[in-house]
């Protein structure tokens, strides 16, 4: 949710320049380091940029999180400008006159915003919960991967620091005291809402893909393809065939050249 602390001047300045050739998208290492929620967000941004037909190169860095202006991955470097997270990047791209939501009226735009916050506040938080609070997942996957890029004593310190941050976040959002069943319940009602909204159409809005489709794709694709000790989230998502269809469609349309497989 925290849209980056946008320097509005830089957006306005950036608007005068065309999309630069050497845009780089910084993210953590996909194979050994990245965690479920981060991976989902990175994928969402990649999908969005591909939907806009904009060129970029993925640049894996072990410390991408600390390079980012908002402390969250992914972020892009376009010419002299650095923009982080999906909302910020969407704004930056819109500033250049490229927009996926031009055909929508005000009410649809407010729908788009509402569903994006829904995904961010339910699915993303549930991913954080599974990764950091669920003991089994934390011990077997999260702590190993998050610490993988640091030498011995530092990995434990970094893990603990990050875990405390996540716990603090979950506490203020009233998710920390939820049981695993309640988390599943929340995810289920969110998926239900999304699939009702999608209503077996191709994309959420008739005019073609939008950033909402990109965000949903990022999260659901990652949930479906990431092997975790618990795959209950993936099972919940699999109960909604229309969402699976959306994910498959976007994967084929925009990512078929990549080596990823659903």
């Amino acid at each position: 949710m925290p849209s980056p602390l946008i320097d509005r001047i830089s957006i306005e300045l950036g608007a005068q320049e065309p999309w630069p050739k050497d845009v780089k998208l910084f993210q953590p290492y996909e194979v050994e380091q990245i965690l479920l929620p981060d991976n989902a967000n990175c994928l969402a941004v990649q999908a969005f940029l591909k939907m806009c037909n904009l060129e970029f190169q993925v640049e894996p860095r072990s410390n991408a999180e600390f390079m980012s202006p908002t402390g969250k991955v992914p972020f892009i470097k376009a010419g002299r400008f650095v923009m982080a997270e999906l909302e910020g990047i969407v704004q930056f791209v819109n500033g250049k006159g490229i927009s996926l939501t031009d055909g929508l009226d005000n009410e649809q735009k407010s729908d788009l915003r509402a569903y994006m916050t829904l995904v961010r506040n339910v699915i993303e938080i549930a991913e954080l919960y599974i990764c950091w609070i669920d003991r089994e997942t934390y011990n077997e996957v999260t702590s190993v991967r998050n610490g993988s890029v640091y030498p011995w004593p530092l990995n434990h310190i970094q893990n603990r620091e990050k875990k405390n941050q996540v716990i603090k976040k979950l506490k203020v959002l009233d998710w920390y005291n939820k049981t695993l069943e309640e988390v599943h319940q929340e995810v289920e009602s969110c998926c239900e809402a999304l699939s009702v909204r999608l209503d077996n159409k191709q994309y959420f809005f008739n005019g073609g893909p939008t950033e909402l489709d990109a965000l949903v794709f990022g999260h659901l694709f990652t949930i479906l393809t990431t092997p975790l000790p618990r795959n209950d989230l993936a099972e919940i998502v699999r109960r909604y065939p229309s969402l699976i269809n959306l994910v498959k469609k976007i994967e084929v349309e925009y990512f078929k050249k990549d080596s990823r497989r659903l």
């Binding site: 407010s110 729908d111 509402a114 569903y115 829904l118 239900e192 809402a193 999304l194 009702v196 909204r197």
Partner: peptide
């Protein structure tokens, strides 16, 4: 579904 999304917004 809309109500859920808007309340989160």
């Amino acid at each position: 579904s809309e109500a859920l999304a808007l309340s989160y917004l």
